[in-house]
Each structure stands twice: as structure tokens, then as C-alpha cells.
Design a protein around this nucleic acid. Structure first.
Length: 651
RNA sequence: GCCCAAGUAGCUCAGGGGUAGAGCGCAUCCUUGGUAAGGAUGAGGUCGCGGGUUCAAAUCCCGCCUUGGGCUCCA
């Protein structure tokens, strides 16, 4: 066949064989090549210089442009290869792992895992980046080849790349696609596509160096991971860097110090939070909101100790499955005790304290339960990952026919709370048992199926979009997880709603049914904030420290212009305090500009500026932290305005 | 826990083999000024901890601790 039929949108042409994608695109549309870095042929991504194979059918060709998502992925993936090539040039003998583009992670655009002949340090990054730029300028070609499995294995064995060989052995069946960057020592086992040559890569930057385990397995070799990002243009890269800088200003650790909310001090221990008075106020308000909802929804309040006998943790299974995360036992009069990592066994104790009838269910026990977990030091992170924290925990003991309604109410509860805080990017995940391996999962298949069904239908009824995740369920039952992003896009788990078939079994929980027989209740573990520390961290970043009035540690600050006004200022402050507001008055001998600046930096919602005029008219001049001066009004009017905001918890 | 980096005043940071610096904050005094920084003076530091090298270490070397970015793990 000497002709190949191709189409591009509505246009259809024939090009003489042999032809590459470029030839076809040129023939089809003179502009199509502009901005393209790769293409799709019948939906399959290929390089621009890929040969077209002539068939009877018409090949549908689409251009992948640098500014599309697919294009960006090609760009980033190609840049990862350029990175590896530069490392190989600078450090001959470097072994390569994998180097994908990252499209979902807002922090980075790509990485490459390497084992260099010596440990790389951050000081090497600028050197490697410089080499990449040099190589980019030389327009080195990305060249694809297809070879037999034996040939590719031989090639990588020859290069002494055992990890690559392992990967190839697992993934290749028959033939494999390899990529070269001509004029560099780089070869990789890769499907592509890539840009035509390194000159297409213009806007990239290396960002970080870290350790990473081969295949994510802590037992395997530790490699060094070099992170970077790439964009279609320098402007986009600059904008991204600027935005990242802005996001870093919202870091809860930085704001926590500046706003005097909390601290973590070396002398007290890693991952242990000291809540300062201003953080304490926010926490009280968070708990107040919760308590109101808990009461409304028929929960009861319980309180339980921080330690329990070791045998209890054997019964609960924590000694078997969770001991690594628990603090070591401590002995009292020959009896061993352990600090609690979870609250569940205690709530079970309360349930078991007296026999239950089906009429008593559901029982809903809630508690701000403080737990301690011996997390690895490298995982600790401000308020987000700590070793001692309080969970807004609740355990619901329910009959099988009540599961659905209770889960639904938990979801409503969660939605209500998240709406109040103004979170819009909440993610729900339904974690279910993996289809493939049944290992470790407790309970009968029909229980799992029914439970998943209950969770899924509750989500659907609420119109909540969620992601179903296989194999992420707890070993004792499926769950719904609630997740949210921090300022720089890291995702943190907050709430969780989990069904549990296991603990009721282990603790032999029962209730008497209407048939006068013993039945086993289901247990629902649920937390909405997850950890109040983590939730606080997320809140700080969400508001960038500017808490809405109802949460703000200081709601109003009174700023007299001269010392003459100090008495009036104290009087105004006292009146607001009596009305239940958190007020400060700044009677220092600073100029009004300095007092305002201070208040702005403390992100106090309202400033009352008082001078001779206000004293004379019995008014207050109101400045709102975002709008600025909103004019003078009577104190009564101001009080009414903020009372309304407080009552409505407005944002 | 593992890889890389960093720890100097309350905070942000400069300096660097020969007895410690700035700005902000804090204290006192002067100033009483209408919507994001008025002025002066002063108090604050075993330069993370321990060891080594050296006549001399905050500075160089080693170990540890803590923090930061990741990996694994997880609320």
C-alpha cells in the first residue's frame, strides 16, 4: 500500500507512505503542528516522528499541544528523562529507578529516582539543573526503539541496572519500548511519548531531593528522589512559583507562632502540642459547635481514662495489630498498663456495663478522647501529624436495620460542620475490601457487601460525590473517609465513618431482640474533625489565620487615638465584654496608624477607632480587617451587627 | 525509622579559628498624633547538646537531639 489515509477533525487526506505523524499533520492542517509536542493516532499517544503504519482504515490524528493536560504530562515526563540524562553525564555509574510525571500532586511536576555513586546533596541540584539546560540547548533527539525482551534485559544487565531489569522482567511480555536521548548516555525502558528533542523543554526547575524506597518498600533499597517541575512556558513556571510562595505564608506552623496560637517545644517532646490561650479559644469554639450538634442529634457524652490494662488491648486486638504505634507498657503493682491509642475499647466497656435491649439501640457515645500514638519521628508535621491528640470520637452501637440511618446522619452531621467552616474542597472516599486478596479481612462476604451497600447508598442519597477505593478498607469493615487539602495541596484525612464487624465479636457485644434472643450489634466508629489538632491546623491554613468572628481569639480591639480617650475606650471594651465578646483595648501611647497595623497583623476582625469626635457623639468608628473603614455608628448598632454574625457563625 | 538540609537574642536573619551583630518584638522615658511602623535609651545570647582537634572553637571534625523537605506509615 503506498498511501495512508489520515484525518484531522473533519479533514481527510492521503499521504504517501512511508510517513510520520509530522508528515500527516503537515498535509492535513498547516497550523496543526504549531505548539504540538506529541500526537494521538486513533486515540493512542505517540511521538511526532512516529512512523504511521498503513492500514485499510483511516487513521484519526490529534495533536497534543504543550498547553493541554496531556501535553504537560509529555513535557514533564520528557523533562524527567532529561534530568536522568544530566545525572548520568555528571555521575557516570548512576543507577536509575523510575521517573514519572506527577499530574495530581500540586507540589511537584516530576521526579526521578536514582542511586548515584555518591550520595547527592541539595548543593548538587543547581549543578544538575545547569547541565540539563546545557543539554536542552543542544536539541538532543528523543529516539524510540522497539526491542525483544531478551535484548532489553541484556542491555540493562550490561549497564548494571539490576532494578531496571527487575522492572522489565515484571512488565515486559514479548517486545519492549526503549527511549534514547541521542548524544547522551541515557537509555530508558519507557512507553513514551516524548517531545522530539530537548530543545522543546524550556521552563523547568529542580525543587527538592529526598529519600525514596524502591517500589515504596521500606525493606528494599533506598534511592534518592530528585523532584522538579516543568511547564509549557517560563511565565507559567514563574506564576506557579509565586503562588507556592504565597501558599507558604499560610503555613499553620508560621501562623501559629505569629498569632500565638500554639507551640511545640523540644523540652516537652516531639509531636506534643501546647495550646496557647488564643489557640485555646479557637478550640473551645470548635468544641462548642460540635457539642451543640451532638446534643441535637441525640448523642450522649462519656469520659474515659487515658490508660488501661494491657489485657484489654489484647482483647481488642491492638496488642496484635497496632503495638508498633503504642507507647510501651508501664507497670503498677505488677499490673501492666498501656496508654490508649484509640478510644473504642472504653466505649465498649460502657456499652457492656449493663444488658441492652433492642429498644435501647442505637447507643451513641461521644467523647473528645485524647490518644497517644508512637508515630515515627520523620512523619511528624506541625499540628497535622502529632503523637498526642484528641479525637472528636463517637461510637454508635446499632442494630443491623439502623446502620443506614445512622450512617446517613453522620454524613449530614459532617456536611453541616464542614459547611459552617466554609470548606469547599472536601473529598469523600469510600474504602472497600480489595477484590483480589481476602487476606486479613474479617467477616462474611455478605456482611461486607451489605455494609458497603449501606455506606454507598447513604452517600448517594446525600448527592455526595465520592471516590471508591479498593483495598483501603480497615480489616474489620468498610469506611468513608473525609479528606481535605492544606495550603500547599497536601491532602490530610480528617473525619472517618467506619463500620466494624470485628470488635463487637471480640468483646462479645450483645443485645436482646424482640424475639428474646441474643443478637450482635454493629459498631460504627465516627470522627468528623478526626484529630482536633489536625483540624485546627487545616483551619488556620484555610483562613490564613483570619478566623471568622465566631472563632477569632480576639474579636474586637478598641483603639483610642490619644490618652484622653483611654477611659472611654475601657468603657466601650467593658460593655462589649459584658455582651459576651472577646475584646482588647490598646491604650499604649502609639500613633493610631501603628495600633491599626498591629491589629491588622493579628488579623482581628474589628477595630474600633475612638477619638474626640466619637467621645462627643457617643459613637464608635468601625474598621473591618478586610474592608477597612466602614464608618461610625453607635455602640448599640455595632453590637447588634456583630451579635448577628456571631450567632450565625458567618464567614 | 530511612535519605538530604538547617539549628546564632522571643521572631526573621547576617557573620565566622582570636571574648557576639542588625531589624522587628520587649522595658523605660519623651511624644498625644484620625485609619498599616513617631523618637530616644535600655535589657536580652555558654551561637542546639556532648566529645575531639587547636595556644585559642560559635566557627573545623565526630556523635547525639530538634526542626524542615520527602519516603514508609497514618487521624
Amino acid at each position: 500500500m503506498s498511501e495512508i489515509n489520515v484525518k484531522f477533525g473533519d479533514i481527510q487526506r492521503s499521504v504517501p507512505a512511508p510517513a510520520t505523524v509530522i508528515d500527516a499533520l503537515k498535509a492535513l492542517d498547516r497550523d496543526a503542528l504549531k505548539g504540538s509536542i506529541a500526537a494521538k493516532v486513533n486515540g493512542q499517544e505517540v511521538d511526532l516522528n512516529a512512523e504511521l503504519t498503513a492500514t485499510d482504515e483511516v487513521l484519526s490524528i490529534e495533536a497534543i499541544t504543550a498547553d493541554s493536560r496531556d501535553g504537560l504530562e509529555v513535557l514533564r515526563h520528557s523533562t524527567a528523562h532529561l534530568l536522568a540524562a544530566a545525572v548520568l553525564e555528571l555521575f557516570p555509574g548512576t543507577k536509575l529507578g523510575v521517573g514519572p510525571a506527577l499530574m495530581e500532586d500540586p507540589r511537584y511536576g516530576f521526579y526521578y529516582d536514582v542511586i548515584a555513586p555518591r550520595q547527592l546533596t541539595e548543593a548538587d541540584l543547581p549543578v544538575i539543573e545547569k547541565k540539563m539546560r546545557e543539554m536542552a540547548k543542544r536539541d538532543l533527539r528523543y529516539r524510540r526503539d522497539v526491542v525483544d525482551k531478551s535484548a532489553i534485559l541484556e542491555m540493562f544487565e550490561g549497564r548494571d541496572e539490576p532494578l531496571k531489569c527487575e522492572l522489565i522482567d515484571e512488565k515486559v511480555d514479548g517486545t519492549a519500548s526503549v527511549y534514547y536521548i541521542d548524544g547522551s548516555p541515557f537509555v530508558d525502558f519507557c512507553l513514551g511519548p516524548h517531545v522530539q528533542h530537548t530543545g522543546k523543554l524550556k521552563a523547568f526547575k529542580l525543587l527538592a531531593l529526598s529519600g525514596a524506597y524502591w517500589k515504596g518498600d521500606a525493606e528494599r533499597d533506598q534511592m534518592q528522589r530528585i523532584y522538579g517541575t516543568a511547564f509549557a512556558s517560563q511565565e507559567q513556571l514563574d506564576a506557579w512559583l509565586k503562588q507556592r510562595e504565597e501558599a507558604e505564608k499560610r503555613d499553620h506552623r508560621k501562623l501559629g507562632r505569629e498569632l500565638d496560637l500554639f507551640s511545640i517545644q523540644e523540652e516537652y517532646g516531639q509531636g506534643l502540642i501546647l495550646w496557647h490561650p488564643k489557640g485555646g479559644i479557637v478550640r473551645m469554639e470548635m468544641e462548642r459547635l460540635l457539642r451543640e450538634e451532638l446534643e441535637r442529634r441525640g448523642y450522649s457524652f462519656v469520659f474515659t481514662p487515658h490508660i488501661a490494662k494491657r489485657e484489654l488491648w489484647v482483647t481488642s486486638g491492638h496488642e496484635g495489630n497496632y503495638a508498633d504505634s503504642m507507647y510501651a507498657p508501664t507497670s503498677i503493682e505488677d499490673e501492666e498498663y498501656r496508654l490508649k491509642p484509640m478510644n473504642c475499647p472504653f466505649h465498649i466497656g460502657i456499652y457492656k456495663a449493663s444488658p441492652k435491649s433492642y429498644r435501647d439501640l442505637p447507643q451513641r457515645y461521644s467523647e473528645m478522647g485524647t490518644v497517644y500514638r508512637a508515630e515515627l519521628s520523620g512523619t511528624l508535621h506541625g499540628l497535622m501529624r502529632v503523637r498526642g491528640f484528641s479525637v472528636d470520637d463517637a461510637h454508635l452501637f446499632v442494630r443491623p436495620d439502623q446502620v443506614h440511618a445512622e450512617v446517613a446522619d453522620c454524613l449530614d452531621f459532617a456536611i453541616k460542620v464542614f459547611e459552617t467552616y466554609g470548606f469547599d474542597k472536601v473529598k469523600f472516599e469510600l474504602s472497600v475490601r480489595g477484590a483480589a486478596e481476602n487476606k486479613g479481612y474479617l467477616g462474611a462476604d455478605e456482611d461486607w457487601a451489605a455494609a458497603e451497600d449501606q455506606l454507598a447508598s447513604a452517600l448517594k442519597e446525600r448527592g455526595i460525590s465520592y471516590e471508591r477505593i479498593e483495598g483501603e478498607a480497615a480489616f474489620y469493615g468498610p469506611k468513608i473517609d473525609i479528606k481535605i487539602e492544606d495550603a500547599i495541596g497536601r491532602v490530610w484525612q480528617l473525619g472517618t465513618i467506619q463500620l466494624d464487624f470485628n470488635l463487637p465479636e471480640r468483646f462479645e457485644l450483645e443485645y436482646t431482640g424482640d424475639d428474646n434472643l441474643k443478637h450482635r450489634p454493629f459498631m460504627i466508629h465516627r470522627a468528623l474533625f478526626g484529630s482536633i489538632e489536625r483540624f485546627f491546623g487545616v483551619l488556620i491554613e484555610h483562613y490564613a489565620g483570619a478566623f471568622p468572628l465566631w472563632l477569632a481569639p480576639v474579636q474586637v480591639t478598641v483603639l483610642p487615638i490619644t490618652d484622653r480617650i483611654n477611659d472611654y475606650a475601657d468603657q466601650v471594651a467593658a460593655e462589649l465584654r459584658n455582651a459576651g465578646f472577646r475584646v482588647e483595648s490598646n491604650t499604649r501611647s502609639d500613633k493610631i496608624g501603628a495600633k491599626i497595623r498591629d491589629a491588622q497583623m493579628q488579623k482581628i476582625p474589628y477595630m474600633l477607632i475612638l477619638g474626640d469626635q466619637e467621645l462627643e457623639n457617643g459613637q464608635v468608628a468601625v474598621r473591618e480587617r478586610k474592608q477597612g473603614d466602614i464608618g461610625a455608628m453607635s455602640l448599640a448598632e455595632f453590637k447588634e451587627m456583630i451579635s448577628k454574625q456571631k450567632a450565625e457563625r458567618s464567614l
